[in-house]
């Protein structure tokens, strides 16, 4: 570095060759350049640096730097993406509606809404269950008849008064559910009793007929009582109470299943939408 050239001189010379000096600065520097040989030599060196850099070989780009959609961060979504997105949104909305509806109904009435719907159809469901029980009753009834015939055959024939008195003692309706079921069975099939009593072919011995008649008569009394109770219960809405403990149990599974199905659809469609969105 030239000892007589200050940093300010260097800066002035640098600006001078770039034509960045004001008119006054330029004229003052040119006056000094006319008298100062060292300053003039330094100017020549600086110009040479500038020319050297300006003439430096330019490199061509070794390849094209144009951007592909992937490099530019442009993601091309699959045509299935809108479908999955819509399915996810709809399933989510339906899930929320079902869930909130069930929750709100449970809070306000204590019984979920689908359970209330089930109450309205409770009589039909009861008939269906009764029909099933009758079917089992028909299977059991011949067995009862055979056992009664066996008893009559092995034991001495009892006096008719004794036979009639025995059912009289059991006239009060037992609290057990079996009698109720039998009563309902009798209600559902009222013609079964006359056929049992009037048909002589079903009784191999004459003594069996009064026994069966007495048994069926004894059974008819709790049936009538049960019918009266059922009518009263229907009037009081007690059948609704039965639906509360039985039918909602079934319907709660339907609700849970529906909610689970909607949740699975919503999550699955959302994941599929995300996957198809990331496709390029």
């Amino acid at each position: 570095m030239n000892s007589n050239i200050s940093p300010q001189d260097w800066e002035a010379l640098s600006a001078y060759i770039d034509n960045q000096l004001s008119v006054n600065e330029r004229s003052q520097l040119e006056l000094r350049l006319g008298t100062d040989v060292e300053l003039r030599r330094t100017l020549q060196e600086m110009k040479r640096i500038k020319v050297t850099l300006g003439n430096a070989p330019r490199r061509r780009a070794p390849r094209n730097f144009t951007l592909s959609p992937g490099k530019a961060g442009i993601r091309l979504s699959s045509p299935l993406y809108p479908t999955f997105r819509l399915a996810s949104v709809l399933a989510s909305i339906m899930f929320v509606l079902v869930f909130l509806g069930d929750m709100l109904t449970g809070i306000t009435t204590g019984v979920p809404i689908l359970a209330q719907v089930a109450r309205q159809s409770a009589p039909q469901l009861e008939e269906m269950s009764l029909a099933q029980e009758v079917a089992t009753e028909e299977v059991e009834l011949p067995a009862v008849m055979e056992s009664a015939a066996d008893v009559a055959a092995t034991e001495a024939p009892a006096p008719p008064e004794a036979l009639m008195a025995a059912p009289a003692e059991s006239t009060p309706p037992p609290p057990s559910a079996e009698l109720g079921v039998e009563g309902q069975a009798a209600k559902a099939l009222p013609t079964s009793s006359p056929t049992l009593t009037e048909s002589p072919t079903t009784t191999p011995e004459p003594t069996v007929t009064p026994l069966l008649t007495a048994t069926v008569v004894a059974a008819e009394q709790p049936i009538q009582a049960e019918q009266a109770d059922a009518a009263a219960n229907q009037q009081e809405g007690d059948s609704v109470g039965r639906a509360r403990f039985t039918i909602p149990y079934v319907n709660s599974w339907i609700i849970w299943g529906l909610e689970g199905l909607l949740l699975v659809i919503a999550v699955g469609a959302m994941l599929a939408a995300l996957l198809t969105r990331r496709m390029r």
Partner: peptide
Amino acid sequence: GDLTAFNRLVLVYQDMVYN
């Protein structure tokens, strides 16, 4: 968002930027 237009600009200036 026209990537083709941008790439035309790239072709014009890539030598300068690379240098």
